[in-house]
């Protein structure tokens, strides 16, 4: 593990309450450059709350955030962004009806602005060229950067969002369930890009509840359950199965598997009767057909 360097981001004892609901309590984690830190947990584990605090959407109720060892307070998403923490949200933060290039530079238009004062204007030619280049670099062939983002596939949109964050100098990349809505092929495109970001020495926080995706690119795994952390593990310290068990909340999963075994036993017991049952069904069908009622009212033939 490359842990000799200081962490990029560190959270200490972070807690967040929404009214009476405790969404996070006492969570700590550290993210190093060149590492994909997977944040795992079931729905409601507090993953989204944690990253919303890190990206400046929420303020923590207690605890602190350290950036390069310095304590920081984010007042807005903009604040976090300006300090190099970029978040790619689950719902993407893309405007479907706007062009790829316009989305790419959204909120960062000054980069492609020419002129000053009243004559300040967007250089769309340059914006289009940069957007196309940056996407080409990650292997996405944009036919026309002026086309609407709505025309892209889910995986391509994720990649545009990630490419955008990287282009604007993100040092910490927070990816909120980037693969959860994607097909296998598209997810692999995104995963490959996450690996690229790691290779460029970025710190990546990869939120997912898909252990297979996490395992494919992750170096470090932190498991959250009901707002608490169950620990942080290096890839050599844990197996995929252990992670899965932990994510589902240990005992719950054991209960579930016991239940499943119960079902299996019941099925086996019933299997003996199946032959007899089939005969009876066939007999019933014949009777029904004979009476002319059959199953024909929903269009199926018996």
């Amino acid at each position: 593990m490359m842990r000799s360097r200081p962490p990029l981001v560190e959270v200490e004892n972070l807690s967040k309450r929404f009214g009476t609901v405790v969404a996070l309590s006492g969570v700590s984690m550290r993210v190093f450059p060149g590492e994909v830190h997977c944040l795992l947990g079931d729905n409601g584990a507090g993953k989204s709350t944690l990253i919303k605090i890190l990206s400046g959407v929420h303020r923590p109720s207690a605890g602190r955030i350290l950036l390069d060892g310095q304590e920081v307070v984010f007042h807005s998403p903009r604040d976090a962004l300006d300090r190099g923490i970029a978040t790619v949200y689950q719902d993407l933060a893309m405007i479907p009806l706007m062009s790829i290039a316009r989305n790419f530079f959204m909120g960062r238009e000054h980069v492609v602005t020419r002129g000053r004062g009243l004559l300040a204007r967007l250089d769309m030619r340059r914006a289009n060229a940069i957007a196309r280049e940056e996407l080409a670099r990650i292997g996405i062939d944009v036919r026309d950067p002026a086309q609407a983002v709505g025309t892209l596939s889910g995986g391509e949109r994720q990649c545009v969002a990630i490419a955008r964050a990287v282009y604007f100098g993100a040092r910490v990349l927070i990816l909120d369930e980037p693969t959860s809505a994607l097909g296998v092929k598209q997810a692999s495109v995104v995963l490959r890009y996450i690996a690229q970001a790691r290779a460029r020495n970025l710190g990546v926080i990869f939120i997912t509840h898909n252990v297979h995706h996490a395992w494919a690119v992750g170096n470090v795994f932190t498991v959250l359950n009901r707002g608490r952390t169950l620990g942080t593990f290096g890839k050599d310290e844990i197996t995929r199965e252990q992670l899965l068990t932990m994510m589902a909340g240990g005992r719950e999963l054991e209960e579930l598997s016991a239940e499943l075994e119960e079902f299996a036993r019941a099925d086996a017991a019933r299997a003996i009767d199946v032959a007899a049952e089939e005969k009876e069904v066939a007999a019933t069908l014949r009777r029904e057909v004979a009476f002319g009622s059959g199953f024909s009212d929903d269009g199926r033939r018996p």
Binding site: S76, P77, R78, T87, L92, M94, I95, M98, G107
Partner: peptide, 12 residues
């Protein structure tokens, strides 16, 4: 107009 939540997240 397109997506106010997304716009806000992007610092608009």
């Amino acid at each position: 107009g397109g997506d106010p939540a997304a716009a806000r997240n992007l610092g608009v």
